[in-house]
């Protein structure tokens, strides 16, 4: 017994070949490397957003742009809807990690249950995003919107903080350009993130079908759930940063 313990300690300290030195499989490590490259892509998008924001004299106020909630009409409810979206995505991340946990134990029934909840959460998030895009589009925001020099200040002033005199004074000269930049970045970055959520939902459905058909049970392990789980958590992780950059700061 003592000898066995000593051997396993030496084994874990020095790599002697015959096993993965990083304690991960090829597929899982490649998923990590892919996610890192994806993090660079999202990072570059968010940095260019930040740079543009830093060199703009004014910038739309999140509490003014995002103050609507479905079926609530003109009620002033800043950040409430995006909080709901964030909650849905965190929740689906929890159900995903519970599916991964069930996979570690080869518990097929629970993998199916938690994958189903994850898919429902993903679809819920995408539906919320569809509503938000539709709403902002109805207010005039889109890719390439707010470029006509004759646009009156009244067309975009409601996106800005009315209580600051310096902001209101700068609006005629800089407001339209800032609104244009804001919506370009908003739709590009949340669109790129939404595309990730959508493909994540598709992958989750594929994994659910495979689990239901017993593919992973025959294979002897549920590592595919873990790899797709990494992707899904990454999508949640990106949202944490998008949430801060667009809605809070």
């Amino acid at each position: 017994m003592a000898q066995a313990t000593a051997t396993s300690i030496t084994e874990s300290k020095a790599w002697g070949g015959g096993r993965s030195p990083f304690n991960v499989s090829y597929g899982k490590m490649m998923m990590w490397f892919f996610l890192m490259s994806d993090a660079f892509t999202f990072g570059a998008l968010l940095i260019s957003y930040g740079t543009t924001r830093f060199f703009s004299a004014v910038w739309p106020d999140a509490n003014q742009v995002f103050k609507s909630f479905p079926f609530m009409g003109e009620a002033n409810l800043p950040l409430l809807f995006v909080s709901l979206m964030t909650f849905i995505l965190i929740m689906s991340s929890v159900t995903m990690v519970l599916a991964v946990h069930a996979g570690h134990y080869g518990d097929r029934k629970n993998v199916i249950k938690w994958m189903l909840w994850t898919i429902i959460g993903g679809i819920g998030f995408l539906s919320c995003q569809a509503w938000e895009w539709t709403h902002l589009h109805s207010e005039g925001g889109w890719w390439g919107s707010f470029t006509d020099p004759t646009t009156p200040v009244s067309a975009f002033e409601h996106f800005f903080n009315h209580h600051k005199d310096t902001v209101m004074a700068a609006l005629p000269a800089h407001g339209m350009q800032a609104t244009h930049d804001f919506f370009n970045y908003f739709f590009t970055i949340t669109g790129f993130h939404g595309g990730h959520v959508f493909s994540g939902v598709v992958f989750n459905i594929l994994v659910l079908v495979n689990t239901t058909n017993g593919v992973y049970q025959r294979r002897g392990h549920y590592e595919m759930v873990e790899k797709i789980g990494l992707y899904w958590h990454f999508v949640d992780l990106v949202w944490v940063f998008v949430f801060t950059c667009f809605y809070l700061l």
């Binding site: 015959g18 096993r19 993965s20 304690n23 090829y26 570690h104 080869g106 392990h221 590592e223």
Partner: peptide
Amino acid sequence: LYEGDQSKLYSGILQHHTDVQSPES
């Protein structure tokens, strides 16, 4: 080739277990 022998890949929490009702689970 791609997944390897899982028993040689993972240790600790990431190891493959059998009893989902166990205290560590």
